[in-house]
Design a protein around this nucleic acid. Structure first.
Length: 258
DNA sequence: ATGGCTTGAGTGTCAAGA
């Protein structure tokens, strides 16, 4: 079973890339972030024609998350329960007995800003939600745009980024808190090429110069980590015309069918 | 250097991203 995550930075603009990528990879589950669309404009029909069911938690202009799956999506849960938030950033569903949590974590703008405070509060609420969710669903994967580079090796220039947004110690501590719930960073379960990132700035030839950060992640609960045989970042869609600034991340999990 | 792209909103230019 292949599961993946991709911040598409507007599904309206990127739908052709998404459909091409689904056809090429045949992933079983794809979590999307930054759909930037309301539910009424979500492309259910095009995705169904491509062989995917979909659930969406969206809003106008900003944010928005979706889960696409070849199998049925059950027990769908919107947002973080008991956390008041106008922003549509979380969606969970069960696919083939596997609990999929799709998250678009806040950017935080600048260390010390109001949005940074929101980011840290939001991350604490997410951890509380996942602690309960893991009790209910031992087979759980948390996929999404975390907006956190967990370690210096996930950053093209750790000196320039030191203590900056996406790299600050409180953000990294929040990432470690998620790992501490019993989750493993699928990417780091395997030997990986050096300097492989998942996001590059549109400006200053960021992608061409590989000035990137690894901020999109797949965290797996213990039974899934034990069944995981690969995790890769696919840079190919980032090379297309009008790309998203993020690349998709994909993991292979070898589960016996339920 | 507070710039540099891209998107959505809406028809001016700005917020937000990371």
């Amino acid at each position: 079973m292949k599961i993946a995550t991709w911040n598409v930075n507007s599904l309206k603009v990127r739908l052709p890339h998404v459909l091409d990528w689904l056809a090429a990879t045949q992933v079983d589950v794809l979590c999307l972030q930054e759909t930037k669309t309301e539910d009424k404009a979500f492309p259910y029909e095009a995705l169904e024609a491509a062989g995917y069911h979909a659930v969406h938690n969206g809003q106008k202009t900003y944010n928005g998350v979706a889960i696409l799956a070849r199998a049925e999506l059950d027990d769908v849960c919107f947002d973080i329960p008991d956390f008041a938030d106008e922003q549509k950033r979380v969606l969970a569903a069960t696919v083939n007995g596997l609990r999929i949590v799709c998250a678009y974590m806040p950017n935080g703008q600048e260390v010390g800003s109001e949005k940074y405070g929101y980011k840290l509060r939001w991350l604490a609420a997410l951890a509380g939600y996942l602690r309960a969710e893991l009790q209910r669903f031992p087979q759980l994967a948390l996929l999404g745009d975390y907006n956190i580079a967990p370690e210096d090796r996930d950053v093209h220039d750790p000196v320039a980024w030191k203590d900056q947004i996406l790299c600050s110690e409180p953000e990294r501590a929040a990432f470690r808190e998620l790992v501490g719930l019993g989750l493993a960073d699928a990417f780091r379960l395997f030997e990986q090429p050096p300097k492989l990132y998942s996001w590059w700035d549109y400006r200053q030839m960021g992608f061409r110069l590989n000035r990137g950060l690894r901020i999109d992640h797949i965290l797996l609960s213990q039974p899934l980590a034990a069944a995981c045989s690969a995790c890769t970042i696919d840079k190919a869609p980032r090379k297309l015309e009008r790309p998203s600034d993020h690349a998709p991340v994909m993991a292979t999990v070898n589960l016996q069918s339920p």
